[in-house]
């Protein structure tokens, strides 16, 4: 990130990647990316990072943890209703 321009644009990258930046900001970023390889790498790898997390599987709730939660609220009779 060698200059002030790169740092200035960095603040807007999430808006840009989320499609929420204004047309003027998008144009400014895209002009800068044509000549700044470092920023191009940051944009591409930041975008890939976001996409990887969007595909990350949700941790599952283990059956025993779920059972103890229902028991803690005196709802034991409903623990297995999804299976029945």
């Amino acid at each position: 990130m060698p200059n002030d321009k790169c740092e200035h644009l960095l603040d807007d990258l999430s808006f840009y990647l989320d499609g929420k930046a204004s047309e003027a900001v998008c144009a400014e970023i895209e002009r800068h990316l044509e000549t700044c390889q470092d920023c191009r790498v940051v944009v591409d790898t930041l975008n890939k990072t976001i996409l990887l997390y969007r595909d990350l599987p949700q941790p599952s709730l283990p059956d025993d943890v779920r059972s103890r939660l229902y028991q803690s609220l005196n709802l034991d009779e409903f623990v297995n209703r999804a299976d029945s």
């Binding site: 943890v65 939660l69 709802l75 009779e77 409903f78």
Partner: peptide, 22 residues
Amino acid sequence: DKVAWADFLDLHSPHVYALALR
């Protein structure tokens, strides 16, 4: 209503657990 609480747990407990685990 116990059925409502069971519905509530079914709907939200996986998300609360995922947040807590992280």
